[in-house]
Simulated assay, not measured.
Amino acid sequence: MTDVSEGKSPLGFWGSAPDRHSAAEDAQGIAAGSMLAALGVTMLASAELLIGGTAGLGFLARYSTGLSFGLVFFTLNLPFYWLAYHRLGLAFTVKTIAAVALTSLLTELLPDFVSFGTLHPVAAALFGGLLIGTGMLALFRHRASLGGFGILALYLQDRFGWRAGLVQLALDLVVLALSFLLATPYVIVCSIVAAAMLNLTLAINHRTDRYIVR
């Protein structure tokens, strides 16, 4: 019988309380969020689009130097783990490292299993941005993120009440501004559409006053 007064379950790893995710639920949420984000990144990469955040910096490095997106993305996130640990706790940091590592790995593997014969840049922007935003939403709701600006955005939301999606949108626009050095105006416009779709998904759906499960 579940101890309701303490919010505990006899199922241990598999059990959960109304206000807290179980370890199994967190694992599923992190895996699902990472898979959605990796598929969205694959769509954007197939259309040679960009995005904001550390993922956008990873795309810029990939297009300009040919480096692996997954490796660059994972490496760029390393400095943000300190902020995550000191401001958002050990559990958040461990789950975020797991999400970033899994997403980085999947973005390297997916092109060998998924390809797009015809993919219009606008479609890639809309669906790719939505997939990444939905993946990040799943991670946020399990107290994890894709690192980088997502960590900073979550910290500012927790500290000052600023909407995480809007904060990240502002930071993403800075990264997209750098894309003028490499991309054509059409690619940049489509990339802005992708960033807007991603961040609107977060801004509309991620509210700590509505979703209180930890």
Score class of each variant (00 low, 15 high):
Asp3Glu: 14
Asp3Gln: 13
Val4Ser: 10
Ser5Trp: 04
Ser5Gln: 14
Gly7Cys: 06
Lys8Arg: 15
Phe13Pro: 09
Trp14Tyr: 13
Ser16Asn: 11
Ser16Arg: 13
Ala17His: 04
Ala17Met: 03
Asp19Ile: 01
Ser22Leu: 04
Ala24Leu: 14
Gly29Met: 05
Gly29Ile: 02
Ala31Asp: 00
Ala32Trp: 02
Gly33Pro: 07
Leu39Val: 12
Gly40Trp: 01
Met43Gln: 03
Leu44Ser: 03
Leu44Thr: 05
Ser46Asp: 06
Glu48Cys: 00
Leu49Arg: 08
Leu49Trp: 07
Gly53Glu: 08
Ala55Trp: 00
Leu57Trp: 11
Arg62Asn: 11
Arg62Thr: 12
Thr65Phe: 02
Leu67Val: 10
Ser68His: 10
Leu71Ala: 14
Leu71Val: 15
Asn77Lys: 13
Pro79Ser: 04
Phe80Cys: 08
Trp82Gly: 10
Leu88Thr: 05
Ala99Tyr: 06
Ala101Gly: 09
Thr103Phe: 01
Thr103His: 03
Thr103Lys: 07
Ser104Ile: 10
Pro111Gln: 03
Asp112Glu: 15
Gly117His: 10
Thr118Gln: 15
Pro121Ser: 04
Val122Asn: 03
Phe127Met: 15
Phe127Pro: 06
Gly129Arg: 02
Leu130Ser: 10
Leu130Gly: 13
Ile132Phe: 02
Ile132Cys: 06
Thr134Arg: 10
Leu137Trp: 08
Leu139Met: 08
Phe140Ile: 04
Phe140Cys: 03
Arg141Cys: 07
Arg143Pro: 01
Ser145Gly: 13
Ile151Thr: 15
Ile151Tyr: 02
Tyr155Ser: 10
Gly161Phe: 00
Gly161Arg: 05
Ala164Val: 10
Gln168Thr: 03
Leu173Val: 12
Val174Cys: 14
Ser179Val: 10
Leu182Val: 14
Ala183Tyr: 02
Thr184Val: 01
Val187Ile: 09
Ser191Ile: 11
Ser191Cys: 09
Ile192His: 00
Ala194Ile: 09
Ala194Asp: 08
Leu198Ala: 02
Leu198Met: 12
Leu202Ala: 09
Ala203Arg: 10
Ile204Arg: 14
Ile204Leu: 14
Arg207Ser: 15
Asp209Arg: 06
Tyr211Leu: 11
Ile212Leu: 14
Ile212Glu: 11
